Amino acid sequence: MDSTLLKFVLPALIILGISAGPAVALEQSCRFIQAKADREACYKRQEEELAARRKPAPPADESKTLESLHQMRQDDEAVYRSIHSICRGC
């Protein structure tokens, strides 16, 4: 193979292998449980863990968010007033 191709393909394959490893390991650990109820419980725990990781972060303090929105609106109004005074009828 071409050495430049190896410079790009090999690191990409290594990164892919590292990132996919834990997910595959979790799935396989449940797969080999013999008792059906235990295996299903294992899969359910994995689904809950995955859902918890995908859950969006809780929003920041609402009062700060509202204050920042209010400040942005004030800034926008000031900009619009200044533009309107510069460009009458543009």
Results as ranks from 00 to 15, higher is better:
His70Ile: 10
Glu48Ala: 14
Leu13Pro: 03
Thr4Arg: 08
Arg31Thr: 01
Arg53Gln: 12
Tyr43Ile: 04
Gly21Pro: 02
Ile15Ser: 11
Asp75Leu: 14
Pro59Ile: 04
Pro59Ser: 09
Ala60Thr: 00
Pro56Thr: 05
Ser3Pro: 00
Ala41Asp: 05
Ala12Ser: 14
Asp61Ser: 06
Ser63Met: 11
Ala37Tyr: 03
Lys7His: 05
Leu5Ala: 06
Phe8Asn: 13
Arg81Thr: 05
Ile86Leu: 10
Phe8Asp: 15
Ala51Glu: 09
Tyr43Ala: 02
Glu47Lys: 10
Leu10Trp: 07
Asp2Ile: 03
Ile14Tyr: 07
Leu66His: 10
Ala60Tyr: 01
Gln28His: 09
Ala37His: 12
Tyr43Met: 02
Ser68Tyr: 06
Tyr80Trp: 15
Cys87His: 07
Thr4Glu: 12
Thr65Arg: 15
Ala25Leu: 15
Ser68Asp: 12
Leu69Gly: 02
Glu47Ala: 12
Ile86Tyr: 04
Ser63Val: 07
Ala52Gln: 08
Ala52Met: 07
Asp2Glu: 12
Gly89Ile: 03
Arg39Met: 00
Arg73Val: 00
Ser68Ile: 10
Arg81Tyr: 01
Glu67Cys: 05
Phe32Arg: 06
Ile86His: 01
Leu5Ser: 09
Gly17His: 04
Ile33Ala: 06
Lys64Arg: 15
Ala23Ile: 09
Thr65Met: 13
Ala25Arg: 11
Leu50Pro: 00
Pro56Asp: 09
Leu26Arg: 06
Leu16Lys: 08
Val79Tyr: 09
Leu69Val: 14
Arg81Lys: 14
Arg53Ser: 08
Phe8Arg: 11
Glu49Asn: 13
Ser3Arg: 00
Ala37Asn: 11
Ile18Gln: 03
Tyr80Cys: 05
Ala20Thr: 14
Gly17Cys: 07
Asp2Thr: 01
Val79Gln: 05
Glu48Trp: 05
Arg73Gly: 11
Ser63Cys: 02
Tyr80Lys: 12
Met72Asn: 10
Pro56Glu: 07
Ala35Glu: 13
Ile14Cys: 07
Arg73Tyr: 09
Gln71Phe: 13
Ala57Trp: 06
Arg73Cys: 08
Pro56Cys: 00
Ile83Pro: 00
Glu27Val: 08
